[in-house]
């Protein structure tokens, strides 16, 4: 359940970006990692100012999101916008390049080691009078991620911006012709993705208690796997896929060998894509000549 929630927070970012510009944002996992590092800096600063508990948690989230948004913006401007009209292969290579760059940037400017992340949230709650039934971090992860998903779903469905996003994902040129500021919509999509990734990374580091520069890579790939499982481009699909992936991994690690934990997700993806190349909720795309 915890894993599923985290994957879904990341997968949302992938699937929204993909829906609009048809690009695998390989650097999304790196944004997640950057969110975690900025939040760590913020934690140190704000706890030195004497804050603690939920106020601290909220402020840390805000700071981390702002930094991650800045990175997301620069990423889009530097690596993706100049290539918007070029073939998919070059966009993809540019994304891979950006991912390597950001990883090594953090490695060089911060540290190659694991950093401990201080716990902000309380360890355990009394739920219905029984203490220790749930780890409170897990409960918070679930609550926060559901809230983010609901907000996003409402945003896409009911607001003007959401309408513009849906228009862009159907046909970018047509949306532009009807007066949608495509660049703005794409930027906003990247920003939203960065925020949800940061929330995910802060929650995860509360859960695991440590971060390093490599943390985003594998999680990013798995979140993408989740988005693909659900059928990329669809938000409900991404959430569904994430939970399926989370359960598969947990059960695989629990009942089979735990060192092959990462393998299950990938094998699941490969087998799944052989039989249904467009994902669970993905529609079959007719190609025009």
């Amino acid at each position: 359940m915890t894993r599923g929630s985290i994957y879904s927070l990341l997968a949302l970012g992938y699937t929204m970006v993909y829906g609009i510009v048809q690009l695998i944002n390989f650097a999304h996992g790196e944004i997640y990692m950057i969110g975690a590092f900025s939040s760590l800096i913020a934690t140190v600063v704000f706890s030195a100012l004497g804050l603690s508990g939920f106020a601290l948690f909220f402020l840390v989230l805000c700071y981390g999101s702002i930094i991650a948004m800045l990175y997301g913006y620069s990423l889009e401007r530097l690596a993706y916008r100049p290539l918007r009209n070029s073939p998919r292969l070059s966009l993809l290579i540019s994304a891979v390049g950006m991912s390597i760059f950001l990883q090594n940037f953090v490695l060089l400017t911060q540290t190659p080691n694991f950093l401990p992340f201080p716990r902000i949230l309380p360890q355990a709650w009394n739920v219905l009078g029984i203490s220790g039934l749930f780890n409170s971090v897990q409960v918070i992860i679930f609550i926060v991620s559901s809230a983010v998903m609901i907000v996003l779903a409402l945003l896409v469905k009911y607001t003007q911006l959401g309408k513009a996003m849906r228009a862009c994902s159907q046909d970018l040129i047509m949306a532009q012709l009807t007066g949608v500021d495509v660049n703005r919509v794409i930027i906003i999509t990247f920003l939203i993705g960065s925020i949800s990734a940061t929330i995910g990374s802060v929650l995860v580091s509360q859960y695991t208690g440590q971060i390093n520069f490599y943390m985003g890579f594998l999680v990013g790939i798995k979140a993408f796997v989740a988005a693909v499982l659900g059928g990329i481009g669809s938000i409900t699909g991404a959430v569904l896929g994430s939970y399926i992936l989370g359960f598969t991994e947990s059960f695989g690690a629990g009942y089979l060998a735990s060192e092959y934990e990462d393998v299950y997700a990938f094998v699941f993806l490969i087998v799944f894509l052989i039989f249904r190349p467009n994902g669970i909720l993905g529609s079959k795309i007719k190609e025009k000549v």
Binding site: L78, A79, P82, L83, S86, S90, L91, I93, S94, V96, G97, M98, S99, I100, F101, L102, Q103, N104, F105, L108
Partner: peptide, 20 residues
């Protein structure tokens, strides 16, 4: 040596932009 991967990453992006 330390900066090798950093330069690779940047190089991939720059190559895609200026000399695909």
């Amino acid at each position: 040596e330390l900066y090798r991967m950093l330069i690779f990453g940047a190089l991939l992006v720059i190559m895609m932009r200026y000399r695909t």
